[in-house]
Design a protein around this nucleic acid. Sequence first.
DNA 1: TTGTATGCGTTATCAT
DNA 2: ATGATAACGCATACAA
Lengths: 336, 336
Amino acid sequence: MAVTIHDVAKRAGVASSTVSRYLNGYHLREKNRLKVKQAIKELGFKENIIAKGLKRSRLMSIAVIVPHYTIFFMMSTSILERIFAKENYSLLLGSFEYDPKNLQEKLGFAEERFVNGLILFSSGVGAESIPILQGYLDKKIPVVLVEQPIPGFETDVVMIDNVHASFRAVEKLILENHIKIAIVNGGDQQLSICKERLKGYYEAMHTYNLAIEKSWIVSGEFVDAGEYAKIQKVFESPNPPTAIYATTYYATIGTVITLHQLHLKIPEDISLIGFDHFDPIDAIEPPLTLVVQPLERIASTAADILLKRMKGDYTDFPQTIIVSTQMLIRDSVRKL
Amino acid sequence: MAVTIHDVAKRAGVASSTVSRYLNGYHLREKNRLKVKQAIKELGFKENIIAKGLKRSRLMSIAVIVPHYTIFFMMSTSILERIFAKENYSLLLGSFEYDPKNLQEKLGFAEERFVNGLILFSSGVGAESIPILQGYLDKKIPVVLVEQPIPGFETDVVMIDNVHASFRAVEKLILENHIKIAIVNGGDQQLSICKERLKGYYEAMHTYNLAIEKSWIVSGEFVDAGEYAKIQKVFESPNPPTAIYATTYYATIGTVITLHQLHLKIPEDISLIGFDHFDPIDAIEPPLTLVVQPLERIASTAADILLKRMKGDYTDFPQTIIVSTQMLIRDSVRKL
DNA sequence: TTGTATGCGTTATCAT
DNA sequence: ATGATAACGCATACAA
């Protein structure tokens, strides 16, 4: 059997409750503090997270639930893993595959495992999941949403300003004198981030009084070649664009490949602004101008709020934090 | 407070130990079995994983430790998550970033959390980590290695036959009458999978008595554009290859992009066999011929062995299972 | 087959 | 400030 606080207590000549107090940061007489510290060191004592959990009904873990295993969510998760490991929390990972039933199952699973908190990437999460999420809050398990709020559910949210990010990207193209601009909008068009990114495109075009051709607006998931034909069609129209804004990582890759196939050179023949900065996108020549989501900032912001709530600090609850995207200006946009 | 076995016992008119036995699959008198079953249903009882864990010193979780968060490891992890969730296990995820110190920390972290088993993607893991891994086995926590064995550490291993996979890929090119074949070998060349994949190339070339030019052998991580120059150089030699074998996902993408830049068409100007089948590789035109690692098979094989060991079944321990890669024959190889 | 009683390692309550 | 003791929810040795 492993070393327990009783062993430590015996060695230090104090009661086990004193050792427990030491471990939890209560004030001890200096003499005892040193003796306990010494005994812990000598015996190599490590506290038993299960026994502690039995009292607290918490297992020093954070549920991280994502809609799907794409590179965006996996990278975000990996950052969270790093952050929370430092605080001695483990991650309980789950993907609900954009299915509400699945989500509720995962939430139940995490709850049965006595997680201390929940970070939910809420893209695609609807009202039907509110009751179980509210159950978390009722049990004082804080919930932080990332990506989007859930209307009717009050909790902390960390998100980026998709509309504005798109607006700036399209505006950037406009300021380089492009007026014929297409959008390759990645993802399920029902998702609010997709709608928002499209909205930013419309807003920029309208703000600058630019006409939009229907054929310039393309959408799809862009994970297989079949969908690339959609991008090709943009250039079959009588009035092809001089610039493209791609709204996701996959859309960006897809657009680059399609342009290669059409022998259109970036930026000489066509300008491009992409979205997200994952490997191996830096492989592409020329280096692409990109809208970059600061994953580290998003993750650490979400983690900070969650940790704060877990400490019981509910000042300024609920909070919505908008993390700014950055434009990584490189060489894929040409001034006309 | 939540419903406990005592509540169930009271409701069913039996002792709590009887309820415990019911839950653990012991035989009860039929009458009692029904009463307990009924009471559980009526009260909505869920067993408390922590209390159970305190007795068993196990928390119904599996440590999955990977060298780094690349798409290969993340996809594998996601498959494991799905498999183990079905068995009511959660995953404890960690990445050691190819650093032994880090690995040992993660292993300690997982052990303190009383995981039931460990799946370690052992690429880059050396002898210095054997003691702590042996500690797992000594505590009856089974360990399954994926990717490669660790010399001097006896446990179950699931891996692919890298040498043979490479051999077959290169042989495929040779059988299509290519004799000038380059290899773009992705990853840290110290890693045994990299050495093995290279070895398969050599073996195939030697078997068919083909000469190898030094300039045809390129290696690197291929996650940023700087390294692409290496691939370009292959074609600057006086005797350029007619076919390329790329040994990782990133190497494959990098090669495709470089070929695009050089205006070399696949397969007209150059044939290509790549490695791994992740999104968005199907975006590439023409569909690439690929060496495919069957992630599902690898993951489920590893999970099966681990579950078997966790049940205490150590027949045929230690076992090394070689999972065959598949060649996905598509359109990127031209017959000369 | 079932019940009683005890312990798993920690925290919290109540004294002192 | 510290010690003794009773929980937390479950599993199990021992009796019956």
